[in-house]
């Protein structure tokens, strides 16, 4: 990465995770890893967010919540699946209440593996997401401001 082109605002939602990855996402924000130095800000409002970080798989109860958050976010938007549960269900794959990874419900752009995903790899995922965000933005401009 040469330089960040944008200061992305991220939003974090905990799907059906063990919260191991959640605390690692939070750890990214705190002094040791400090993603704010890249201009990354954590927000609680989906309308403000560019990047959605989701940890954990999708279950029947949280499915609609995830869909709702995703649809509330403004275009262009990027989804990062954090942790192996979010990628494909992970250890909980065989549980009856788990549908699978986040991509069973909404489109995912970046997959961050690991159980728990390490803060370094989460930051790497966010950096990749910023590139994708930029790309999507360029495409949008070409199409005259439309996302699709």
């Amino acid at each position: 990465m040469s330089k960040m082109k944008k200061s992305p605002w991220i939003m974090h939602y905990d799907g059906a995770s063990c919260n191991g990855c959640d605390i690692e996402v939070l750890a990214c924000l705190t002094p040791l890893y400090d993603v704010e130095r890249f201009g990354v800000i954590n927000t609680g409002n989906p309308k403000h967010a560019d990047i959605l970080l989701i940890t954990g798989g999708i279950n029947t109860q949280c499915e609609s919540v995830v869909k709702q958050i995703y649809s509330q976010m403004a275009e262009p938007k990027v989804v990062v699946a954090v942790g192996i549960c979010a990628c494909n269900g992970g250890v909980f794959k065989d549980c009856y209440n788990i549908k699978g990874g986040v991509d069973t419900t909404i489109p995912v752009d970046v997959y961050v593996p690991g159980c728990a995903a390490r803060p370094e790899s989460i930051i790497d995922g966010v950096v990749k997401a910023v590139d994708i965000l930029e790309e999507k933005y360029e495409n949008m401009k070409k199409k005259g401001g439309k996302a699709h």
Binding site: N59, Q61, F92, Y96, N97
Partner: peptide, 10 residues
């Protein structure tokens, strides 16, 4: 129930 996975059944 937002985080229910049914881990015990596994």
């Amino acid at each position: 129930g937002y985080v229910h996975r049914r881990l015990e059944k596994l």
